[in-house]
Design a protein around this nucleic acid. Structure first.
Length: 570
RNA sequence: CGGGUUGUGGCUCAGUUUGGUAGAGCACCGUGUUCGGGACGCGGGGGUCGCAGGUUCAAAUCCUGUCAACCCGACCA
């Protein structure tokens, strides 16, 4: 490919709306352009990288026995009504009607579609397992699309669905995909973690999110450096922390004027924060008051609270009236003497001695609270309900956990019979009995993977691509393309590299050297070969490695083999 | 959905307060000089100011409506 033929509109400035580095760089480097909020066109350079990522995915899917198919984007509403998700999906689903008024959705995912495809065709266990995948646009009408390709309304996703005859088979498919995903993100040159995830509504199955480590990521994860443990902050299990035993002192109510916050109480009574108990009051859809208690320096994990309370799907902050109705008041809540409420106490709180807690009345707290003595065990639920913090012990090996932010680029999970049952998809097993398929689904955000790679690999000059997903592996730059000697040598090297199977670009534009160098750095080709009067005189060519900024000179005769060698390391 | 901000050439933005008929830099076209880190000169093309309506002799500027984009999202007592 020649730069004079390439549509790669680079910009000096980035649009005002771009926030993330990856978004700015993709825009400036001429990878994407926006058509509407959360909807983008991919220009040639962007599409080259997308295609390379897709090819890596394809190879790994095929290696696990996956077969590529293509399903429709436009899906009939009746299928979604059958699974019950027509109403559940809500405003996030893009809907449309045809000229006859029939309803359709733009597919946000394809469980329904594939299950209906399979249920009509696959009759025997002998046809299983079956792993089918596609790479295609998905539509989700996000409340707030942002961050360029990170959270868009139309995006390219690889989705694979597995069909197995039993749970063992399903778990085996899961293992295969887990392995394939690890290989894919490794090949893309990404630093990532497979994170244990909450798969909530699906229940029972495994789920992992593949998260690329980046400070700008939207999800927060806890991980252990010693063992393999990694989990989303909401999912991370926590070990019980037992305070050192102390001699029990009698419970006592003290005045704490205007001490609405733990900080104020701590300072007023001059006690360490680890000896305070704080309360967070929620209510659910049925207006039940739910009060969670954690140690003063801990945070409540709403997901865990929700999971601990029977029949609750949403939590809201409790309103004052509800708190008053339970004979308490905000800022001074306590499990001791509170009225009608669901009380959830973090397990660590139960192991505290002589602590400070609210007194359910304005400007008063209890001191010397020892939960096991002072709480009414019959009325409380004791669970792990706190949010993980940096330094908490790893649930597997006990080492202090680290916290980091990340970008979720893929997820794998087992579905079990969830869709095969609701959509009545059955086959005959060895015994001639009808059974529901055991399913799994596995997704990768392709555009997001590209964005994550940039987020993780950039500097002040632009993108730094890993060779595997760079739009071109090598760029050959004659500093002055109007000089035939330079251009001719550049053409020779370009052709030799091409023959050697390198994905190479010849920057034959009649631009000044500075302009071309800036573009090279911005676009981020891993390797630049420079031809100039200087190198012509010396009989060398100059190589610049984008990532390290390192320059090297190779003799003309051996430069091709040297470049090929160097490429292996990028 | 609620709150905030913004919409002026491809990009970044000025002009709006105090109405008088649109401007800069970058990009683009031509030309000459320059030529290893986003050169310079000269000459050009391109916008009716998001859209619709209103006020006015006159609207980018004031009013109403509408659309779009961006940012923030209760609260941890």
């Amino acid at each position: 490919m020649r730069a004079t033929q390439l549509y790669a509109p680079t910009l000096r400035e980035s649009p005002a709306e771009a926030e993330l580095i990856s978004h700015k760089l993709m825009f400036r480097a001429g990878f994407i352009r926006k058509a509407a909020g959360g909807i983008y066109s991919y220009l040639p350079l962007g599409w080259r990288t997308i295609k390379k990522i897709m090819q890596i995915i394809r190879e790994e899917m095929d290696a696990k026995g996956g077969q590529e198919i293509m399903m429709p984007i436009v899906q009939p509403a009746e299928l979604w009504k059958e699974s019950g998700r027509w109403s559940v999906y809500g405003d996030e689903m893009m809907r449309l009607k045809d000229r006859h008024g029939r309803e359709f959705a733009l597919g946000p995912t394809h469980e329904e579609m594939i299950t209906s495809l399979i249920r009509d065709e696959v009759r025997s266990y002998k046809q299983l397992p079956l792993l089918l995948y596609q790479m295609q646009n998905k539509y989700r009408d996000e409340i707030r699309p942002r961050f360029g390709l990170m959270r868009s309304r139309e995006f390219i996703m690889k989705d694979l669905y597995s069909f197995d005859k039993d749970v063992d088979g399903m778990n085996n498919s899961y293992e295969k995909m887990y392995d394939a995903y690890s290989r894919i993100f490794t090949r893309c040159g990404l630093k990532f973690r497979a994170v244990e995830a909450d798969n909530g509504a699906i229940g029972g199955g495994h789920s992992h999110e593949f998260t690329v480590l980046a400070p700008s990521g939207e999800s927060s994860i806890a991980y252990c450096e010693k063992c393999d443990y990694a989990a989303s902050d909401e999912k991370a299990e926590l070990k019980l922390i037992c305070a050192d035993a102390e001699e029990l002192k009698p419970l006592e109510k003290v005045s704490t004027p205007n001490c609405h916050t733990i900080e104020a109480v701590k300072n007023y009574l001059n006690v360490p924060i680890e000896k305070t108990i704080k309360a967070v009051a929620f209510m659910d859809d049925e207006e039940r008051l739910i009060v969670a208690f954690v140690r003063g320096d801990h945070e409540v994990n709403e997901i865990k609270v929700m999971n601990a309370v029977e029949g609750t799907n949403h939590l809201y902050m409790a309103d004052e009236k509800l708190i008053a109705a339970a004979n308490s008041c905000a800022g001074f809540m306590s499990p001791i003497g509170i009225g009608n409420a669901i009380i959830i106490v973090d397990q660590t709180v139960m192991e505290m001695y002589n602590a400070v807690a609210g007194a359910n009345e304005v400007d008063a707290h209890f001191i010397n609270v020892t939960p096991r003595r002072d709480f009414d065990a019959k009325k409380i639920i004791v669970k792990d309900i706190r949010m993980v913090q940096e330094g908490d012990p790893c649930p597997h090996c006990g080492e202090p956990l680290k916290m980091t932010r990340g970008i979720e680029v893929g997820q794998v999970f087992t579905l079990g019979k969830k869709y095969s049952e609701t959509l009545n998809a059955k086959f005959l097993d060895e015994d001639g009995l009808e059974k529901f398929f055991e399913m799994g689904c596995y997704g990768i955000g392709v555009g997001r993977t590209m964005a994550a790679a940039i987020e993780q690999n950039n500097d002040k000059d632009g993108i730094i691509w890993n060779k595997a997903i760079a739009p071109f592996e090598v760029v050959v730059v004659p500093v002055n393309a109007k000089d035939d000697k330079q251009l001719n040598l550049a053409e020779e090297i370009y052709n030799e590299l091409k023959t050697a199977g390198v994905d190479v670009l010849l920057d034959d534009r009649k631009e000044r050297a500075g302009v071309k160098f800036k573009d090279c750095d911005l676009i981020g080709y891993p390797l630049r070969v420079t031809i100039s009067p200087k190198t012509l005189d010396s009989g060398n060519v100059e190589i610049k490695i984008r990532r390290s900024g390192e320059f090297m000179n190779f003799a003309r005769g051996e430069c091709i083999s040297k470049i090929l060698e160097l490429l292996k390391t990028l």
